[in-house]
Each structure stands twice: as C-alpha cells, then as structure tokens.
C-alpha cells in the first residue's frame, strides 16, 4: 500500500483489477482475488476472457440435456403412480400400491431437487431406477426385459443428464472462482 502511494510518476499496474475490482499491490502480476493476469500480455488477458466465455457456453449447452433428464423423471413418476393405481385397484395389492406411490413421490422430490443440484438429483434417480428394476427382476426375472427399449432410453437419457450436469457444475465452479460477471446464473 505504502509503496503504491510513493510511485505516482508511472503506474505500471492499475490499482484495481479490471475483472473483479479487487485492490492490487503495485508489483502484482496476477489479481489475488480472481487470478486475472493484470501484469500479463494482451494475449494472456484474452485467454482469461475466452475461458469465461467457454464456460458460459458449456453451461448453456448442458441445460438442454438436464431438461431431458427432468422430463424422464416426470415420466418415471407418472408411470410408477399408474402402476400403483393398477396394483391397488385391479390386483387388490395395497402394499404394492403404497410402495409404488412412495417411489413415484421420490421421483417427484428429485425433479424439484434437480433445479438446485441437477447432478445429485439425476445421479440419485439413475441409481434408484436401476435398484427398483433389479429388485423386480429378483422376484419376476421376466420383468427385466419388459419394456426394454424404454428402459434403455431412460438409462441413456439419465447418463447424459449426469454427465451434462457435472459439466455445468464444473463450469459454474470455475466461473465462481474467477469471479466472472453474471455467474450467479444458477438456473440450470
């Protein structure tokens, strides 16, 4: 601080970071708040900005696949609910109805959670879906292959959702770290 007051003739380094407005020491080559290369070449500064733009684009690209995963969760919830209705009213299986409704409810909770933490919610649904199908297969092995195409679509969509959500999460962390403007865009 004292050093910068006395060297008034030629300020080589701006006193505030151009990227995040953190106060800088006179000899800083990088901003201590966001790692912006304040003392670097134009090319280095450009690379820093490109990094921010790239991460924002990655987040935008992953949103679509996360949306697909959310639709899959809605469909799973609806199908499980219908299955519960069928078991309760057509088969007179009260326990089966309650269990199915509980699972349908868990899928709905996951849809709501997906807005806050899409990665965790999609991963949980992925594991829940496989677990439910494995349990069913132990009692009725034939069910493993019923609706196999739908199951493959569901698992594929969820896997894509998990990877995309991870991508978006990584990019958000990166943007937060470099204090990019508008990085609070958490609507995934």
């Amino acid at each position: 601080m004292e050093a910068s007051l006395s060297s008034s003739d030629s300020p080589v380094v701006p006193l505030k970071c151009e990227n995040c407005a953190t106060a800088l020491a006179a000899d800083s080559k990088f901003c201590p708040g966001c790692s912006y290369p304040v003392g670097g070449s134009e090319e280095q500064k450009m690379q820093f900005r490109i990094r921010i733009v790239r991460n924002k684009e990655l987040i935008k690209a992953s949103k679509e696949k996360i949306q697909t995963a959310k639709i899959i969760m809605y469909v799973l919830s609806g199908l499980t609910l219908l299955q519960g209705l069928y078991q309760g009213f057509a088969e007179d299986n009260f326990n089966g109805m309650v269990v199915n409704w509980l699972v349908a409810f868990i899928y709905l909770i996951m849809v709501a959670w997906a807005d806050k933490n899409p990665f965790a919610a999609t991963l949980s649904v992925f594991i829940l879906f496989i677990t439910v199908n494995l349990v069913n297969a132990f009692f009725f092995p034939a069910t493993l292959f019923s609706g196999i195409i739908l199951k493959i679509i569901v698992i594929g969509g969820l896997i894509k959702g998990i990877s995309s959500a991870k991508q978006a999460q990584d990019s958000l962390n990166e943007l937060e770290k470099v204090k990019a403007a508008n990085n609070r865009d958490r609507e995934l």
């Binding site: 020491a25 800083s28 080559k29 201590p32 770290k177």
Partner: peptide, 15 residues
Amino acid sequence: LAGPHDIFCGQCGRE
C-alpha cells in the same frame, strides 16, 4: 507472500 484474503498468488497466479 500473500495477505489473509488473497485467493490466488499475485506473482504466479496459483490458487
């Protein structure tokens, strides 16, 4: 050396 609130190194940019 770096201050208590610094997140990155001012000299080399490392976290």
